[in-house]
Amino acid sequence: KCAQPRRWKAFDGKITEMDTQSTLRGKELLEIYCSITTKDIPKDERISVLLTVKCTVKEHECKLTQELVALIDREIDLISREVKECNLEGLRKRISTLFLQYIKIPEFNPEAAGLLKVPQDPLKLYKRVYFCHSCENYLASTEFPIPANSRTIGRCRSCYRLDNEARKREAYLKYRLILEDLRKSEVDYQDDSKIIFLVQLADMQYLIENIWNCQSALSGSSDLYDLVMVRWDKQHEWSPWNTILLTKEEADAHLKLCNLEKTYEAPFIYKMEQKHIRAKNYFAQIPVMSSFLHRSNNQANANSYKN
């Protein structure tokens, strides 16, 4: 990337390329690196490449370049002594590795500055790094979702994601417990209830969240660990359109009722009926539920004729 020329698209759609001093420098270093990593070349050519590397790095005096020059001198000496190439592999890898490090230093290769993940100026790094109090890691500012009206730095994106996943798992556990309790209670009725065993966890979640708003129909309690679903009319099997969400204490009292119309006020009954209609509309889209829904409608029509 350091060797790539600057490119931009003109108004007519043509791509224009331009080399700068830094890209030319990058191209030069790339060619040298490719030469130094090429295997199975004649000894004279190898020595020529090593001398080119030596001249290039000697332009800058530092510990890295001094070590690189020393290794190059050693290889040239060993080549002149007719040492087998297989015995030079380790030395050559070391030379190519050090030269690659040399290429990555912006002082020697200006184009490398734009490709480094960590800025060279410590002050820039300090200003763009924040501490996450949740995972206790120092992270870049881009890792923090900061609202426009926020004055403090909260948790990082990873911690938010992890927290959301944990909350979802906890919520699913609550829905599963409600579903399991409901299935057990339906078995106890011994009236061949079937619908509850067709309802999946996702259906129960929708029912609780969207129809019942995660709260008791009577008290408004939102503690899902204390909420249960029971039959609205205990004379008929449980279904999404014959249910009510209550606390455990309220459910016990509700199931002891003999006449719902005498116990509950008309506005409350109307409210429950509206929730049941919404549940019917949703579960009517599920093919396996349609037959039970038609049967329920037929029973309701028969009861209305009797009345």
Rank of each mutant, 00 (worst) to 15 (best):
W8Q: 04
A10F: 03
F11S: 12
D12E: 13
D12R: 07
K14C: 06
K14T: 08
K14F: 03
T20Y: 10
Q21W: 08
S22R: 09
T23G: 05
L24A: 00
R25Q: 11
L30D: 13
L30R: 15
I32R: 09
C34N: 13
D40I: 05
I41G: 01
K43L: 06
D44N: 12
R46M: 01
I47M: 04
K54S: 07
C55W: 09
T56C: 14
V57P: 07
K58A: 05
E59H: 09
E67Y: 09
E67W: 05
A70E: 14
I76T: 09
D77L: 07
L78S: 09
I79M: 08
S80L: 04
R81K: 15
N87K: 10
L88A: 02
R94G: 01
L98I: 08
F99W: 10
L100T: 01
Y102A: 03
K124Q: 12
E136D: 06
E136K: 00
L139K: 12
L139G: 00
S141R: 09
T142C: 06
E143G: 00
P147I: 14
P147E: 11
N149I: 15
R155K: 15
R157F: 09
R157G: 10
R157P: 04
C159I: 03
R161V: 02
A166H: 10
A166E: 14
L177A: 10
K184C: 07
E186V: 00
V187R: 10
D191S: 10
D192R: 09
I195C: 02
I195L: 04
I196K: 02
F197A: 00
A202V: 14
A202G: 02
D203F: 07
E209F: 05
E209C: 04
I211R: 11
I211M: 11
S216I: 08
L218M: 14
S222R: 10
D226G: 04
D226Y: 06
D226W: 12
L227M: 04
V228E: 15
M229V: 03
W238D: 03
S239E: 07
N242I: 03
T243G: 03
I244S: 05
L255F: 05
L255Q: 15
E261C: 08
T263K: 14
E265L: 10
E265I: 07
F268K: 09
I269T: 02
M272D: 03
M272K: 13
K275I: 00
I277L: 15
Y282T: 03
F283N: 03
Q285H: 07
V288F: 08
V288A: 05
V288P: 08
H294S: 06
S296Y: 08
S296Q: 08
N297V: 01
A300E: 10
N303H: 01
S304L: 06
K306A: 09
N307K: 11
